[in-house]
């Protein structure tokens, strides 16, 4: 019995990590309907960026993140400005194929630069620290911190979207980019800005990914799929929905793994398809779309 409570707790907390993976994707989905197939690889890129900052400057992961985040913001902005903006408004195919190509470029460039070795961001004793809830029930500090960060990121994104002038412009552009231009909103600049913000969120996700588990240049696509599933389960355009989606995937994976360790990933995918069949538009769809 207690082991099941433990499993469910672990699963929900794992969902926090997936929500972090998904939040950036959700942001991009929401504003420009762009499905970024390179999202997972961008997370891995961010993890390597943090790793590089750590080794080059001899600093801890958090400081390294603070150094890497602005750089990643610029990378995101430039990527959108120079490449992805050219693909928008030309149908489904160009953005999909361009980001798919980008995914392959990123994976192989990282392989070239960092080899296929597994890496980790070492954060010291905090990695193994845990909080005892009951005699036999403890939760890791890192998973807890990850979950708290996911909640914080989603709160921050909601504040950005619903309490600031830029957020208003984000939503207006998402609703009707032609009319938004009549308001003096340069939609291409908005998109670039959004991708920059998404890359900062991606950097946060990468920080936790790198501390909690090994990573190598090839693990991006799997993270993309988890993130995508969380976004679709939650309903497009809803950040809290994305958190719920992440938790559902996390729960399904942990429960699946408890039954049979080989079923972990499979269970997550199947949970996704079950939700998709029952609620094609996700659990918290936007009223207008």
């Amino acid at each position: 019995m207690l082991s099941w409570v433990d499993t469910i707790l672990q699963g929900a907390l794992l969902g926090g990590l997936y929500a972090l993976f998904a939040a950036g994707l959700s942001l991009i989905f929401g504003i420009m309907r762009l499905v970024n197939l390179a999202h997972g690889d961008l997370i891995v890129l961010a993890a390597f960026a943090i790793l590089s900052a750590m080794t080059a400057l001899g600093v801890g992961p958090v400081l390294a993140f603070l150094i890497a985040a602005p750089i990643l913001f610029c990378i995101g902005y430039a990527l959108q400005h120079f490449v992805l903006n050219r693909t928008l408004g030309r149908g489904v195919l160009p953005p999909l194929l361009v980001t798919f190509g980008l995914s392959i470029i990123l994976q192989n460039a990282l392989l070239e630069g960092f080899s296929a070795d597994s890496r980790r961001l070492s954060a010291g004793t905090i990695e193994t620290a845990s909080l005892a809830l009951l005699n036999d029930l403890a939760i890791g500090l890192m998973p807890l911190l990850t979950f708290a960060s996911a909640v914080a990121v989603i709160l921050a994104l909601n504040l950005l979207f619903y309490r600031t002038a830029v957020g208003r412009a984000f939503r207006a552009t998402s609703d009707d980019s032609e009319i938004a231009q009549l308001m003096g909103i340069d939609n291409r600049r908005i998109y670039s800005l959004a991708m920059g913000v998404a890359m900062v969120v991606v950097a946060i996700a990468a920080l936790y990914l790198g501390i909690r588990a090994n990573f190598d240049p090839t693990i991006g696509p799997a993270r993309l799929l988890y993130a995508f599933e969380a976004v679709i389960i939650g309903g497009l355009g809803s950040f809290w929905g994305t958190l719920v989606g992440g938790i559902i995937i996390g729960l399904a994976q942990t429960i699946g793994a408890k039954i049979n360790p080989e079923w972990q990933i499979l269970a997550g995918h199947i949970a996704f398809f079950i939700v998709l069949v029952i609620h094609p538009r996700g659990l918290f769809p936007r009223a207008i779309d």
Binding site: L102, S103, I104, Q107, N108, E112
Partner: peptide
């Protein structure tokens, strides 16, 4: 890896400039 990077770049270039 360089071959695959080239492949990806070529596909992106075609999609952007000669779809």
């Amino acid at each position: 890896t360089w071959y695959l990077i080239l492949l990806g770049t070529l596909a992106i270039a075609v999609m952007l400039f000669a779809p």
